[in-house]
Design a protein around this nucleic acid. Structure first.
Lengths: 348, 348
DNA sequence: TTGAAAGCGCTAACAT
DNA sequence: ATGTTAGCGCTTTCAA
């Protein structure tokens, strides 16, 4: 359809969306010049660009992203899937995943990508074909390891779908990003040792699907050995939530030979344990030292505030995005740091 | 281009995306039948549909959402903008907004919409023309009231952009959704009174941009009066964060005539205040009763765990989505409930 | 119930 | 530096 025909149609009174043809007519240039000017191509002279921009503003014109992306072939969008517990509501989501989601959105934006976010939990409704549907250029998967069918689903997807990245574990060999768990565990153990503790226990399941816990235990063992101390077998507690698991583990620990220091595989468990300790009247850090992992904000207000190992969230988001987009990206270990609060007594 | 031509091109060895034409050929039907079958239109016979679906599966075909939406005119997407502090990182975001974000995404999904999420903070980079760009059918704005330029930006947008919804306040008359603050305040005051407290103070700024705090104070005043008690002027504390403001307010309160009960306009402030109280050796709920507002998860692990007024998050998300989409939707007050924890002593 | 044809609004290849 | 033209892949008339 020519510009002339469109004009006639418009003048006939039909309500239409303003298109680049309308802008072209108003600016006295061709439609493709409008496209180039608004896309910021260098071949357009400053004067032409100004005229086009003004005409666009006057008409309230915005580029239709669907048409632009259909034609250009890309989407400039990254899909972020947050896996949650089956049947669970948003209140039950570990705040760690929210923080990670936030930094991933920010990292995507920094690279000029938009973020399409879905929370997925029910096995029969899992969906990850965002790239095939041209809804996104890549897919990032984060969330709870407790929902096995969901991880399985996305792991399978990644077999014939290169542009994916997983937090923790999943997908093909080179598609995961996770914390520097060995380093984190070392930081935790060294801090407890500095406080004078020698009998230090690790809390968290090590053989399960939360592969990062296994790494944290491995790091704990290495660090203990390096300090000339004997690593203890990992302690676990059963419960629906991490919180409950932490309480249960704490209860079990207090029944036996009491350790001087405790390294929890995640803050959520440590927080539950702290509650149990307080109820039992056991003083932290006086009677026992506690270190967590994840850098949860809640730890800042717990009793006492929780010393923890925190991944650099900003980097975590950036790495997820670049692994998802580039596939060739190599850095996949997120640096960690010790956040000193008050659940371990001062170094001697 | 005819089906025949496409076939020739494909056989010439050119790598192309699988299209509905390919599926049509394989299924032995026309391209439009493929479209109809996959869209689930009722006019297609079961046998035809099965053949099409099988061909699609065999070829790994998925509908290109850009093309489908360009043609059909919709986007089936809702943009969610989370306003954050200028220069702030994800760690500083109030977890309340994350929970609200989660429930809004869930509500959008329940209505068949996808969620395009952006975190926005810097004044020069604010963007909300998602509808004009045909990136979304509606825009929902949530986040911190502390970023004035951002709220101003989106409020302006809503003047000529009907499909918007704001959490708290903003936009045109009928575009906001917020907690039932009057009811929430009443719940809080009644609980403190039940514990035997009579001198009850309210903490939070009432004349500011956080309009909900004003409503909570109003509700506090009404509830106090209804109980035959004298409302006190609102107490505020200065600080960068809500946490700091809570501490400062607490410090100020302790300098004067000590109240028996405290109602905080938000949990984040209450949590800061609780820390200060603990440091000063003042027992909660023994020496003073505390109630917050927001239902923050952190409150479950504070010292003591924080009794709070919680909005029904699932409903909050649903209301935001339906206000954004329908414009005519009427229900905009989110019901609240009292979450009993341990910062107020048992009713007498 | 299905097929043929039009065209959504844009970008990019090819002209000039 | 700009105009002309083709066509991205689909949904939706219109016809049969």
């Amino acid at each position: 359809m020519s510009t002339r025909e469109r004009t006639v149609q418009a003048e006939a009174g039909e309500r239409r969306r303003v298109t680049s043809f309308d802008v072209a007519e108003r600016a006295g240039v061709s439609q493709s010049t409008v496209s180039r000017a608004l896309a910021g191509l260098e071949t357009i002279t400053a004067a032409t660009r100004r005229r086009v921009e003004e005409a666009a503003r006057e008409l309230g014109y915005f580029v239709d992203s669907r048409a632009a992306r259909l034609r250009s072939g890309d989407t400039r969008t990254i899909a972020i899937v947050v896996i949650t517990r089956e049947g669970g509501d948003v209140r039950a989501i570990n705040p760690f995943h929210f923080t990670l989601l936030g930094s991933t959105c920010a990292a995507a934006a920094a690279r000029g990508f938009e973020a399409l976010v879905t929370f997925q939990s029910e096995p029969e409704q899992l969906f990850g074909r965002f790239v095939e549907e041209r809804r996104a250029d890549a897919v990032i998967v984060i969330g709870t390891t407790a929902n096995l069918p969901a991880w399985e689903h996305f792991r399978n997807l990644s077999e014939d779908q290169p542009n994916m990245a997983f937090w923790g574990v999943g997908g093909e060999e080179n598609e995961w990003v996770r914390s520097d768990n060995l380093q984190g565990a070392q930081l935790a153990v060294e801090r407890l040792v500095a406080a004078g503790h020698r009998r230090i226990a690790f809390v968290g399941e090590t053989g399960g699907h939360q592969l990062q816990f296994g790494e944290r235990y491995e790091g704990y063992c290495r660090a203990m050995t390096a300090q000339g101390l004997a690593p203890l077998p990992p302690v676990t507690g059963t419960g629906e939530t991490r919180d409950g698991q932490g309480r249960a583990a704490m209860e079990a620990i207090l029944k036996g030979d009491r350790p001087e220091g405790l390294f929890f595989a995640c803050d959520a468990m440590a927080l539950g344990a702290l509650d149990h300790l307080a109820q039992r009247g056991i003083d932290v850090p006086g009677d026992i030292g506690v270190v967590g992992f994840d850098g949860l904000g809640s730890g800042a207000h717990s009793h006492p505030p929780l010393t923890t190992v925190e991944p650099e969230f900003a980097l975590a988001g950036e790495m997820l995005v670049s692994v998802a987009l580039d596939a060739g990206s190599s850095e996949r270990r997120v640096p960690v740091r010790l956040v000193e609060r008050r659940s371990v007594r001062a170094p001697r």
